[in-house]
């Protein structure tokens, strides 16, 4: 896979990729893409895409609020990578990168 494609895909996937990794990743992905290329030779005109299994899907359930127990709340807060006053602290979405 060409270098620009690796970098573009990495950006889409939000995975940082270093310069020296790009070639190796490109080769590895290229090998897999080469293998799955065989699907191109299968005649699929008019064939529908496989639908979700199973066919007998469940009925809907009530959109009811269950709430959150104190134990659950405690675990959720314990899992916050960064917090302040019991709230999750995260980078601002619209903040410009600090230079």
């Amino acid at each position: 896979m060409p270098k620009e494609d690796v970098l573009a895909v990495a950006r889409l996937a939000r995975i940082g990729v270093t310069e020296d990794e790009v070639e190796r990743i490109g080769d590895e992905l290229g090998a897999v893409l080469g293998y799955v290329e065989r699907l191109q030779r299968v005649e699929t005109t008019g064939v529908p895409e496989a639908s979700a299994l199973p066919v007998l899907a469940r009925a809907f359930r009530q959109d009811a609020v269950n709430g959150c127990s104190e134990t659950e709340r405690a675990f959720i807060e314990e899992n916050f990578p960064a917090s302040e006053g019991g709230f999750l602290k995260a980078p601002a979405v619209f903040e410009r990168p600090k230079r």
């Binding site: 996937a13 939000r14 995975i15 940082g16 990729v17 270093t18 959720i76 899992n79 916050f80 990578p81 960064a82 999750l88 995260a90 980078p91 601002a92 979405v93 903040e95 410009r96 990168p97 600090k98």
Partner: peptide
């Protein structure tokens, strides 16, 4: 993505945080 749970590599911006967290 390092936001709500798990490990986080705090970057200089939201995007950098995503990129670095997932890479590392």
């Amino acid at each position: 993505d390092g936001m709500r749970y798990g490990a986080r590599h705090q970057g200089s911006s939201l995007l950098e945080t995503y990129l670095e967290t997932r890479r590392e």
